[in-house]
Simulated scan of single mutants.
Amino acid sequence: MPDVIRRRPYCSQPPRRLPVLPPDMPMARQHAIVVGRAKWVNGTPLRYAFLADTRDHAQEEVVREAFDEWKDLGIGLDFWEVQDPGEAQVRIGFRPGRSWSCVGRELLAVPADRPTMNFGWDLRTEYGRTTALHEIGHTLGLPHEHQNPDAGLIWDEPAVHRFLAGPPNFWEPADVRRNVLSPLEPAEAEGGRWDPDSIMGFEFPPGLVIAPEEYRAGIEPPGTISKVDAERILFWYPPCLQEWLPRLEEFESRPLSLAPGEQYDAELLPEQSRTYRIGMFGAADVVLVLFEDVDGELRRIGADDDSGEDRNAVIEAELRAGCRYVVRARMYHAWQNGTTAVMYW
């Protein structure tokens, strides 16, 4: 076993809270909700900041370059570095030990004084750049690819536990099971194929995989964003956001015909300053997000997610006359025939 592989540290994800869905819910609806729940609505500006108590300027530059590499795919998200962590959704630390990141929108549940991403080893190496790309992939909503159930990997579990219990990871059995041995639930899997080249997969030495035969000699992803990674992320965050958005008028019910993963975007220009409600109608699972345009930069002011529930998403917010707002509605799944609609009043 090559020494460089034996010493490689791995991303150690904290436990995730998956939605509790009724067991009799159709699998297509479960899959749409579980896969889509961590994804941002397209056009979200993600602000990131480095935490003051662990700042490391040399490593920060690696992280900035990794954000740029994801952005250079042409995705419809923007990344903004800010100095105040209180202004950031993504709060990055460099505390020695483990590297990890919250998955997508799950980071919104983290208290504002806590990190949502940490780098536990030096990023100023080739593998460090891979680590930065990997953790940002989690922030974009991607899970570990080697846990894709479509991989069909059969592990030598005692060997995996021994391998990861030693340096440099020193994982407990629960860490090993959560980050390697336990496959994603079928509803969690991103697509119908496993990508062994994914930036979201780990490199494994020989002796850990029993089958398929071709991986008994090890799994060696190149450590870069793969073609499949790019395809998946561009599905969720396509580059063709409209520069001009249709205006949604007050009390206008705008019918929508959205396929799973598709999104509707509109601007609101209220004529009065008062409390408004922005809501969805119809038998569908939708995440609804409201932004305010502040000097050309969109700032999230409200959101509601009705997925898996027998209700429709609605946001109540104080809107001001003369200001511009943007509403974005992303479809998970339409669970009855018929048209959905959005309205504000």
Rank of each mutant, 00 (worst) to 15 (best):
A313W: 11
G302S: 09
Y325D: 09
V289E: 15
V326C: 05
D304P: 02
E271R: 12
R311M: 15
L288R: 03
F281Y: 11
R300C: 12
W335N: 01
L288S: 03
G279F: 13
A317Q: 15
I315T: 05
C323V: 03
G279L: 09
W335I: 01
I315N: 07
R277D: 07
G282T: 03
R274A: 13
E309K: 12
S307E: 10
R277W: 13
V286W: 06
M343T: 13
Y325W: 07
E309H: 11
D295N: 14
Y332T: 04
V287K: 10
G282S: 00
A334L: 09
E316I: 07
E297S: 10
V327T: 05
V289D: 15
Q336D: 12
R277H: 12
P270D: 10
D293R: 06
A283E: 03
M331K: 00
C323L: 12
T275F: 08
R274K: 15
R324H: 06
G338M: 01
M280W: 01
L288K: 05
T275N: 09
E316N: 07
T339D: 02
A341C: 05
G308Y: 13
E316W: 03
V327F: 06
A321I: 04
R330K: 10
A321S: 15
Y276E: 05
G322E: 05
V326Y: 07
P270Y: 07
R324V: 11
Y332G: 04
I315R: 08
G338C: 02
L290C: 11
G308V: 12
L290P: 10
A266R: 06
